[in-house]
Design a protein around this nucleic acid. Structure first.
Length: 436
DNA sequence: TCTGGGGTCCTAGGACCC
DNA sequence: TCTGGGGTCCTAGGACCC
């Protein structure tokens, strides 16, 4: 039996805003000399993260390797991604949107939803005019452009903002829904991925309109909740609310890193894992959260994943307390005959630090001491950079980073290198021994 | 988009309890 | 001891998003 969904009884006016080639546009806004030129970000990854419209016009698209870019567009300006700057643009963009309505959902770094329902009166004009004012304000204050869509639901607003890019402004009123949905392949609908698209196509549903028109019985009987919701949204019945509160709460925190070439060196791989754990813990502590479970996973050369979840005896965000679990997980998952290309950890079952219930067996004094140690570590990292202090177990990854390219150290050589007394000095690595 | 890094939510099935 | 009905909690895994 499927539970009924909450459908807004009132027709809503939902706006979706999507910045145009966001990262590249930010760069052009900061560096006016780049305006009109093909700009690409993603230098650090070796593939295109974002391409300006000038670059897109030359055939550059996301995910293309930079060596490919140099062939098709030799005069492209290739820059490393500067997330801090983009985040600032993002904050200001949302702030501008917030001047028009308090109901703003920051969906991602370059996208937002806003509920405009009822605002026509206070703005003395139609929704299209409000949307246009938002666009103009963002352009004049930030020097970047955004595409905007307005319709009856979030899914339709997404369709609208995508309909005309860049600088588009598209309104989809209820009576015109079918016109817009007709040309949209089903897999382009927000929330419908390749798997579900393939399933729907078996029933003759190939476009967004086919899906919207699908029989209610079919939708109820054959599809799960997320798709029943999308079906209503496509028909102009709003079920997804615009969620205001900003990101301060997490269900899980994960950190993963890929390395090349793939490795089977246990010490090296464990060090990677350990560094991921430290980074995840830093983030958890920043939000004053502690994890109840730890997931350890390894990705093999052929992209298969293996992993395991470990329930912690006591929720924590302190690596020193989690290393035992990490080792255990690693021991279960790691196979010496496999080549690995990525490691990762997930902290899940997050709860506010304050709510942790310690049992009689937990040594209160020790925990108190540990929390003070990490307070110091966190403040040192803040002052001297993220890697000022870290656990010895994470070291082989740092050595690797320093030596990559210069000496072509294999992971095995690096772990040997580590044993040399003066290795640390030679590499200029700061290190702190902590006894807990 | 043949493959980067970080997330969310849903479902099915098993364990366990009354 | 067997049988049946029903609930809850947990976990693994799938699907999708930017």
């Amino acid at each position: 039996m499927s539970r009924p969904l909450t459908i807004s009884s009132w027709p809503r006016a939902i706006l979706h805003m999507d910045a145009d080639a966001f990262f590249a546009s930010c760069e052009q806004a900061i560096h006016p000399e780049l305006k009109g030129r093909p700009v690409i970000t993603g230098k650090e990854r070796g593939i295109v993260s974002a391409a300006s419209y000038e670059a897109k016009a030359r055939g550059v698209s996301r995910g293309v390797s930079l060596s490919e870019v140099k062939k098709i567009c030799p005069d492209a300006v290739i820059l490393p991604s500067d997330y801090e700057t983009y985040s600032l643009f993002s904050v200001r963009m949302f702030e501008i949107l917030g001047r028009f309505t308090p109901d703003v959902e920051e969906y991602s770094i370059d996208e937002a939803f806003a509920d405009l329902t009822g605002l026509r009166r206070s703005f003395h004009g139609p929704y299209g005019m409000i949307a246009q004012r938002i666009q103009e304000t963002i352009h004049s204050e930030l020097g970047i452009t955004v595409s905007v869509g307005v319709s009856l639901s979030k899914v339709l607003a997404k369709v609208a903002s995508k309909y005309n890019k860049p600088r588009g402004l598209t309104l989809i009123p209820g009576r015109d829904i079918h016109i817009y949905l007709e040309k949209i392949p089903i897999e382009k609908v927000w929330g419908v991925g390749p798997n579900t698209a393939a399933f729907l196509r078996k029933f003759g549903i190939g476009t967004a309109l086919d899906f919207a028109k699908a029989d209610e019985r079919f939708v109820e009987d054959r599809l799960s909740k997320p798709y029943r919701e999308i079906w209503h949204e496509l028909n102009g019945r709003s079920v997804y609310p615009v969620v205001k509160e900003s990101k301060s709460d997490y269900q899980s925190i994960s950190k993963a890193r890929t390395f090349t070439p793939p490795s089977r060196d246990a010490a090296f791989i464990f060090a990677q894992l350990s560094r991921n754990l430290e980074n995840a813990c830093i983030k958890a502590r920043r939000y004053k959260l502690a994890a109840e479970r730890l997931v350890v996973f390894l990705r093999m050369q052929d992209f298969r994943n293996t992993g395991m979840e470990i329930k912690l005896s006591c929720p924590s965000a302190y690596p020193a307390q989690l290393f035992q679990a990490l080792k255990e997980g690693f021991g279960h998952v790691f196979r010496p005959d496999c080549l690995y290309r990525q490691t990762g950890v997930v902290l899940s079952g997050l709860m506010p630090e304050r709510k942790i219930q310690y049992t009689l067996f937990d040594d209160a004094a020790r925990i108190e001491k540990m929390s003070r140690v990490y307070e110091v570590i966190d403040s040192l990292s803040q002052r001297y950079g993220k890697y000022a202090v870290h656990h010895a177990a994470s070291l082989p990854t740092k050595l690797q980073a320093r030596h990559e390219g210069e000496r072509g150290d294999t992971p095995t050589r690096v772990s040997k290198l580590l044993k040399g007394e003066n290795a640390r000095q030679r590499l200029g690595l700061p290190m702190l021994h902590i006894k807990i």
